[in-house]
Amino acid sequence: MNPLDFSGVFSRADRLVDGVWLTAQISLAAMVFALAIGVLAAVLSLSGNRLLRLPVFAYVEVIRNTPFIVQVFLIYFGLPALGLRLDPVSAAILAMSIYGGAYTSEIIRAGIQSINRGQIEAGRALGMSPLTIFRHVVLKPALASVFPSLVAQFILLLLSSSVVSAISVAELTSVGNDIQGLTLRNMEVYLIIALIYVALVAALKGGMTVLERLLFPFKFLRR
């Protein structure tokens, strides 16, 4: 066994920084889109209309029960056959958004279902418009109650970004793989990469905690 030698990793710190930056960018973009897809899909899946519910059911189950790498390949290599050619980064964001959206929609659906019907009726009695009721009486409390699950899902989404190295996106894992190939120092690279991911997750968790206080101050009221 060779002694650990990190010099080949540290001398390429600039590339790691580029990788971290790209990982952060595609992950954040995917989180925003996944949330939007999730809300839309959750609302459709709770609608009384079967024609709306069924496609959402199919979307959620196909995505949740097949490997993410296959979805990535289909979007990057399969869509050109249909005339849609995406660059690797766009394909990665699209794939991650679709993937994250499926899980997010299930979480948000549970949140909406936990809203007491009495609240909605109270909103109506106060003369609120359906849109106002949806936004303030249904969606906001629903998101507030499932916020921890959403954060957990976003962490998984961040970690899943490592898969898109397969379609040549130069994110963190991909940079790590490059350095492994150049130096053959696999263990050293993985130790550093793992530390960086833990730090990224810590940053995401911290940011989400701040966001939770800003968006849902009512959760932190003293009783």
Partner: peptide, 18 residues
């Protein structure tokens, strides 16, 4: 330079015009 994880993906990228 775009780096793929295996030869099948690299060739597929050429075949599909990526």
């Amino acid at each position: 330079i775009q780096r793929f994880e295996d030869d099948a993906a690299t060739n597929q990228a050429l075949f599909s015009g990526q």
